[in-house]
Design a binder for these strands. Structure first.
Length: 585
RNA sequence: GUCUCCGUGGCGUAGUGGAUAACGCGUCGGACUACGAAUCCGAAGAUCGCAGGUUCGAAUCCUGCCGGGGACACCA
């Protein structure tokens, strides 16, 4: 283990237990970044308070800090440690220790990031588009944030289940199937635009449903057949689902997302579980009839007029709704999948819905130790501060948005002067990665619950805290290896730290594990994005101050090795965010 | 009305209850005859919405107020 924070935390804890007894072994050592040293421990200040109760009489935090220091064994780690300010312990790591840890990261294919001691089964529910509907900007964030969370947790050694909770069930499918029959189902197989243009297909069905009573009646009957499991209806339903899956995969391909067909567990999957779920709620006496519907009133939720707010689990017409599905899903994840944690990457507007559904699941005893969390995704806004729309006022299709990002990246890319033009194929590859990476990084670098204004110019800028800047930083490191005629994986060091910028870079690189840990625990990818940017920043400072190639053999070997760790940390970090990294730019 | 999220330099944001609030854009001033200037260095710029409270210590926790977004019974 080489993570400075974790190493230090363990040492301070040992000292606490030695100085004050075993009951202090679990105390948080409060290790924090410091402006006066590499890290500081703030534990003495709260501890002094606690000791006052036990010892009786005032305790000076500085004296407590000194007591800890007296029992602290960190001689192999630090070059300096001292009591400072009101009672902080300031630690400065020795260059030798930092270099040794960087060397470990270099030698380890996992960059010496520890895998979880107790791996959890984590279900990450994300993307969740609707069958027979176009994916729009609203799906952008839930898809890429969820994908990043899944990748990060996986890297940390957890058992991650990607769960694409596709909207593939419900009343609209009656009219969609009837419309498909009217058009002729061969249109689906031949990818005719009357079907493959999902927006047009859906709207045409809707128009007929609203205007043609005979069609509407057929549609309603079709829904009944669908839910009863009629084989021919299910076959037609599958035709629609397949068209949509093909379309989802095109978008996922553009987006570089790890979701596959195997990750789809749509609403239809839970269809047979709805009735048993509702029955259990009835049997347990949790559900009751209200205004003709079967509902649960979780305590503490109130509506407009202060009246109790229900979760409707069976509509007055006998049908089920999405609350029922979500409850059945929780029950399944607990009883069958045995998940330790479920992360719902879904829009913030559904916050109340999830709170209530989680509460009902808790009442029914379906959660146990399973941690349910809603990662509330903020809206993507247009420059007018309202939900992003097309100029005509329609929803922005995700695929078109991505195509425009790539096109704009190309325009910017071609403005850059270069000695020799890149081959067309390579240019296309780079531009694709820059455009998509820019959009993804812009999204992943801000807190997932905050809204943001979608602005191509800001995202695709090649300077500042942007995807292209980070891609460029990585490409520039690769370029050094190109000049050296050495592959990054062949750089073996030994790493020796001399210059201040080398030390700062190495220390920064050792923080990868802690950054991932925090991003994973909180399910907040932007914490990783912030870290990755800080690595690029530390590297450019190093790059400006320390020559790599034009130095003596030992310095060159050390700096190449340091560059190799930096490159892999950058590339791995960006990969976990789902941001592609071109070899050259 | 209730609940909820948010309010941090001109703009966009970060910030595990810890010391002098960090970064990017923009502005101003510098740096290419050595590894990619798509870069870097420096400067100016903030009573962290307001007022109380808890705490040795608050941008962070609590209460109230102001301002904004969102949700609030049979669509998902």
């Amino acid at each position: 283990m080489s993570d400075p924070q974790l190493v230090l935390a363990a040492r301070v804890q040992a000292a606490l237990s030695a100085a004050f007894g075993p009951s202090y072994a679990d105390a948080d050592p409060v290790i924090r970044p410091s402006q006066f040293a590499d890290l500081q421990s703030n534990v003495a200040l709260p501890l002094a308070k606690r000791l006052e109760g036990e010892r009786g009489g005032k305790q000076n935090p500085r004296a407590v800090a000194q007591e800890i220091l007296d029992r602290l064994d960190v001689s192999d780690l630090v070059s300096d440690v001292q009591v400072s300010g009101p009672g902080f312990l300031n630690f400065t790591f020795s260059d030798e220790w930092i270099a040794a840890q960087a060397q470990r990261a270099l030698a380890d294919e996992h960059l010496d990031v520890p895998r979880a001691e107790r791996p959890q089964k984590v279900i990450v529910e994300y993307s969740s588009p609707n069958v027979a509907k176009e994916m729009h900007v609203g799906h952008l964030r839930t898809t890429i944030v969820g994908d990043a969370i899944a990748r990060i947790l996986e890297f940390l050694g957890h058992d991650v289940v990607r769960d694409n909770h596709v909207g593939d069930w419900g009343t609209p499918f009656g009219m969609l199937i009837e419309h498909l029959l009217d058009l002729g189902e061969d249109k689906a197989a031949s990818n005719d635009s009357s079907v493959s243009d999902l927006t047009a297909f859906y709207q045409a069905a809707r128009v007929k449903f609203d205007g043609d009573e005979e069609f509407a009646e057929r549609s309603r009957k079709r829904v009944v057949l669908l839910q009863a499991g009629d084989p021919e209806t299910l076959r037609l339903w599958n035709v629609l689902v397949d068209v949509s899956k093909r379309y989802f995969n095109v978008v996922y391909g553009k987006l570089g997302v790890t979701l596959t067909d195997d990750d789809i567990k749509g609403e239809s999957f839970y269809n047979d579980l709805l009735a048993p779920t509702v029955k259990e709620l009835e049997d347990k006496g949790i559900a009751q009839i209200s205004e003709g519907a079967l509902v649960v009133f979780p305590p503490g939720f109130k509506g407009r007029e202060g009246e109790p707010l229900p979760v409707i689990i069976r509509k007055s017409d006998g049908g089920y709704n999405y609350s029922t599905t979500d409850l059945a899903t929780i029950r399944f994840r607990h009883d069958v999948e045995h998940a330790d944690r479920v992360v719902y990457v879904v829009g913030a507007a559904q916050a109340l819905h999830f709170q209530m559904v989680f509460a009902v699941a808790g009442m029914a005893g379906w959660t146990g130790d399973m941690r349910l969390e809603h990662a509330q995704i903020g809206n993507v806004l247009g420059t007018d501060g309202k939900l992003l729309r097309t100029r005509a006022g329609g929803t922005v299709k995700l695929a078109e948005l991505l195509d425009e990002a790539v096109e704009r990246a190309g325009t910017e890319f071609d403005k850059i002067e270069r000695k020799e033009p890149l081959p067309a194929a390579e240019r296309a590859d780079i531009v694709e990665k820059v455009g998509i990476g820019a959009v993804k990084y812009a999204d992943l670098s801000v807190a997932l619950d905050s809204e943001y204004v979608f602005d191509f110019d800001r995202m695709i800028a090649f300077k500042g805290n942007t995807g292209p800047y980070l891609q460029y930083a990585a490409a520039r490191i690769r370029s050094i290896f190109g000049r050296a005629g050495v592959e990054p994986q062949d750089a073996t060091g030994p790493i020796v730290l001399g210059h201040e910028a080398e030390r700062a870079l190495a220390l920064r690189l050792l923080g990868f594990g802690a950054a991932l840990q925090q991003a994973g625990d909180a399910a907040e990818p932007h914490k990783l994005a912030t870290y990755v940017y800080s690595v690029a920043d530390a590297y450019t400072t190093f790059y400006e101050n320390c020559l790599v190639l034009h130095e003596d053999e030992a310095t060159r070997a050390s700096r190449l090795a340091l560059s190799a760790v930096a490159l892999r940390t950058l590339a791995t970090g960006l990969d976990l965010l789902g941001v592609p990294v071109p070899e050259r730019m």
